[in-house]
Write a protein that binds this DNA or RNA. Structure first.
Lengths: 213, 213, 213, 213
DNA sequence: AATGAATGAGTATTCATTCAT
DNA sequence: AATGAATGAATACTCATTCAT
């Protein structure tokens, strides 16, 4: 009933152990207006991060660009980190929605290939944003707050199909994610635009890895 | 001749075309004491980053831990970023010194294996430091200031020996570095300590990659 | 007849000559529901002040705990101060209702003793609340808004009976109130729980004071 | 060696139990300049509290009035509360320095009388300041940070001389302090200026209390 | 060369209050 | 009458950097 329930990320959850935040369809603002506000704030954060980098990424600027008061921002996000986390989650969700199509592929190999392609696609769309968010996601403070379960689950499942005999799929999933992130961010940093080539090299690394572990 | 020559990274160099800082003999112990001071400041930065994370990493704290006045710190480093860059360079140098031994190996494969082992070793020694520096190194502001040439050259050469027929060694070098960094940082984040296992998986990814590109 | 009449403390009254608020019949349960709402808000304020202290005492929190919207709170109280004042008045009223029994005592001494006992009782019941409200009541902004007349009248009357020959009863009343408040709050701060002892010391101070003035 | 050592009130000491801060001649800024700065900040705080009340009492305003940057304020005071505490301590020290003269009196009674006179004097000099500081001192957050030991010790000693046979001097000291504070603040609130009269009534209460406990 | 006191722009965050629905 | 989303002025506090001594 109180405004607190709409807060995207509770204070409690920011400290202490993950606590497995209710990954359930988290209570999103009920009234249309609020929902819009939240969305506009997150998108504003994305745009600022994209165009100004970390330097310009402060809550007041985000609120301004969102056309919202700073108070509204804090109505929905208990702090700056919560906003960052929300943005990361939005991006991950979008990636997930695309990547999940991989599961419709017949073969495990095709599924994994789709996954890699999706990763490359995502990177090339908003390269700076993707990169900076990866950076943020690695920050000790934020790690543990981000909803990775679904995404990791997806990788796990795809790898299970692509490498059924692999003995440690969780390790493999973590490694594959790490490889993708490493290569794709590095490509972004270097300004690569040839997603064809990047995709191929990524396949080389990932399939090579799987073939040898 | 003046004190300015001791500045690790000039302001000018932070903007504009970076690369190749003043190629002066670099060693030239202008004054033993100054060299010591610089070293102690850099080590203080390392320790703080390791123990307090980004949160505690500010110039005043670094100076205090180094047992030096904040004024002195700015005598040697024109700014915080310059200090960060100096620390990154120190770490890269140390890694380079170890990794360069790879070149003494007979076979290209052995050389590359040595390289990978060195990367894992480094990560496991000061995991937090290594990770945070990788993060910093990726920051748009710092990229371009860091001396990567030597290190990249080393990778290039080792790859040349390990995969003589590879057509785009520079791309391969960048990719391999990205794979290593991705996997090794990820392992660090997850608190992995079994460097044996990590090394094997790293080899799988890198050799797999090379075999397929 | 309008909603305004329910406002506990008009803005106008906060500035300008306070004293004697609109002497309207004060009771007149305009609407049972409204009265309940007001009561629940005041009690919520009391609970928060008691459990969270000044830190947690903000209008939104009060409304939330009262199970009422923030808008409703402002429907009945023109501002935070008005709410605080209403709470103080409620507590004073309760104290008054108990303390007024003093007037039924035969002797003036007994009456005064009853008064002191009542004061101690009140303090020991909700020590933190009593103390914080005393603090608030002393705030320049609020002084003058609180209904002290009745209470002071009571003290005046009791003192008149206890020390009939006293020449300046109003001064004595103020002093006695000050002594009680000082000692009782101090005891609360120090966590005293032995109300027997406190009562005795209080009597010593007050009767001593009266005997010598 | 670091700036931290000059901080008037360490962070650690603000949380957790009193910890009996080194009541020793606390490390005051060593260089003359710093000492002046600290003094000017505290005096600025006093003036603002006196003239603007709590409303205008914010760190930026204090710094401005002190003719000092906000950064300097925080160089010496880790937070607003620390500044408040420092001001309270300064005032208590001043009061102590005056009140300690009581110990030079021959009789215990005369000593106590001197103490009461000093308390009244102090109140009448800067009434608003004295009152507001008493209010602040009672705030749960600040209590325990203020150096009361000396002052309480003084009261203890004076009472020992004035009422040698009293069995619980510590309780008596606390009560007497409470009585003084209560009456004197109340007088201040009511705008009393006749310190003669106030002094007499104070004596009545205190000596009356002592005679009966 | 060294010191460390001083600076102040910058930023996160709170909370009383308003008002469209 | 009630709701609660929205507001934004106010404020505590940080930290990179400068410069007088």
């Amino acid at each position: 009933m109180g405004a607190d329930d709409q807060r995207i990320l509770g204070e409690a959850s920011l400290r202490g152990h993950p606590k497995h935040k209710p990954t359930r369809p988290r209570r999103v603002p009920l009234q249309g207006r609020a929902e819009e506000t939240v969305a506009s704030i997150i998108e504003a954060a994305a745009q600022i991060l994209e165009k100004e980098g970390f330097a310009g990424f402060n809550t007041n600027a985000v609120a301004r660009r969102a056309g919202v008061s700073i108070g509204s921002l804090y109505q929905y996000f208990p702090g700056k980190d919560a906003l960052t986390v929300a943005l990361i989650n939005r991006e991950n969700k979008r990636f997930y929605d695309d990547a999940a199509i991989a599961l419709t592929r017949r073969s495990g190999r095709a599924a994994l290939e789709y996954l890699l392609a999706a990763a490359v696609r995502r990177q090339l769309q908003r390269p700076m944003l993707a990169r900076l968010l990866d950076l943020e996601e690695a920050r000790p403070t934020l790690r543990g707050e981000v909803e990775k379960d679904e995404l990791e689950g997806l990788f796990h499942e795809v790898l299970r199909r692509a490498a059924p005999k692999h003995e440690r799929l969780d390790v493999a999933a973590a490694d594959v994610i790490a490889i993708i992130r490493g290569m794709v961010d590095s490509a972004g940093e270097r300004g690569e635009t040839d997603l064809q080539s990047l995709e191929e090299r990524l396949r080389a690394a990932v399939f090579g890895y799987l073939a040898r572990t």
